[in-house]
Every structure is written in structure tokens, then in C-alpha cells.
Simulated scan of single mutants.
Amino acid sequence: MATEAFEEIVEDFDFIEEWEDRYRYVIEQGKEMQPLDDALKVPATKVDGCASQVWLHPRIEGGVFQFDGDSDAMIVRGLIALLRKLYNGLTLAEVLDVDARAEMARLGLNEHLSSQRSNGLRAMIERIRSVAALG
């Protein structure tokens, strides 16, 4: 179960054959994202378990989940952008129903991310799920 915005990413990836081009695409997604306000880059929004600096700022408005994020690493910033397209606009129950690892695997990311990046991605997904569970 993925959002329409994430399905568009999946479709784009179907047309990009080379992993280097997919990597650049992910980085471009991160560059298009608005930077997180420095005032929100605090210990409460920092995600532990990531090799780079990562901050996620979730908001729940009317039962709908939204989050912004940022990182000091370009590829991680891109991964945040992909997660935003996967989760933003879903209800809290829908967020919990998403199998993020399976959805991200549709992009072929599992085989191409370092173990540190994979651990960081897992930590970001866990943070999102925990916020939705506490709703």
C-alpha cells in the first residue's frame, strides 16, 4: 500500500536502468525538498542509528500523518524525500499498515545501500512508525 506520489517514484525507477542514475535520482529528490528549519534540528527530532545526522519532524493534523526531515548526507536526504512520498498524507492506521521495507525494495534499494545506510533507513522507518503508533 503506497501513496500515489510513491507510485510515481516506482514508475520513474522502472525507466531508469543504471543504478548510478537511480542514485542520482534519489539525490535529486532530496535536493527538491525544503530544508528543515535549524530550530527543529534538536535532540528530540534527531534519529539515532544513522551514520549521518538525520532529523525527522512529524506532525499529525486531523489524524493525517505528515513529516519533514533533513540530513547532512545527500543520499540520506534523498531517502527522507522518498519516505515522505511514501507516508505523508496517510492516516495513522495506514502508516502502520505500510510495509516500508517491501515498498523501498520495489526501488531496488536493498541491494545498493551500504549496511550503515540500510540501518539508518530502518531507524527512520521505526521512528515514523513509533510516532504513528503513539498518535
Rank of each mutant, 00 (worst) to 15 (best):
V26C: 03
V42Q: 13
L121N: 06
R127S: 04
D14I: 00
G120F: 09
E32H: 08
D38G: 07
F6Y: 04
Q29S: 11
D70T: 13
I80S: 02
G49P: 06
P43T: 09
D14Y: 00
A81P: 04
F65Q: 03
E61Y: 03
G78F: 10
A73R: 06
D68P: 01
F67N: 06
A93I: 01
F6Q: 01
C50R: 01
I60P: 03
L96A: 02
I60S: 05
P58E: 07
G30L: 10
G49S: 12
M33A: 10
L109P: 01
G78R: 05
L82C: 10
V54D: 02
D99C: 03
V54Y: 09
P58D: 09
G89V: 05
R77P: 01
C50D: 02
I60V: 15
G69A: 09
L82I: 15
A81D: 05
D70F: 14
E8Q: 15
R101S: 07
G108F: 08
N119D: 13
L56M: 04
I16S: 09
V95H: 04
D37Q: 10
A93H: 04
A39Y: 02
A105E: 14
L40E: 10
E126S: 14
R127H: 15
Y25A: 10
V98Q: 06
L36H: 09
L107D: 08
L92F: 02
L96S: 03
G63R: 11
R24Q: 14
A81N: 04
S114K: 11
V10N: 06
G120Y: 09
P43W: 14
A5L: 12
R59T: 11
V95T: 07
I75K: 08
S115Q: 13
F13S: 06
M33E: 14
K41C: 12
A123H: 05
E61L: 07
R84L: 00
D21A: 11
E7D: 05
A39L: 06
E103K: 04
M74Q: 15
I125P: 03
A93Y: 00
K41P: 01
Q66W: 15
A73G: 08
E18Y: 14
R127F: 15
D48F: 01
K85S: 07
I27A: 05
R22P: 00
H112R: 14
R22F: 10
D38T: 13
S114M: 10
Y23L: 03
G30A: 12
E28L: 13
A102S: 11
I60D: 01
P35C: 06
V47R: 03
R24N: 13
L107T: 09
I75Y: 08
A39E: 14
G69T: 03
F67K: 05
I75N: 06
N119P: 02
I60T: 08
Y87I: 00
D68C: 06
Q116L: 14
W19K: 04
R59S: 12
D68S: 12
R24W: 12
S52Q: 07
G120E: 11
S118Y: 08
I80T: 05
L36C: 11
P58H: 06
R24A: 12
A44C: 01
R117N: 07
Q53S: 13
D12F: 11
V54G: 08
A100R: 02
A81C: 04
L86S: 05
N88S: 04
R77G: 14
G78Y: 12
T91L: 05
R122C: 08
G62L: 07
D14H: 07
N119T: 10
Q29D: 08
A39T: 12
I27S: 04
A100P: 00
A102N: 04
D21K: 09
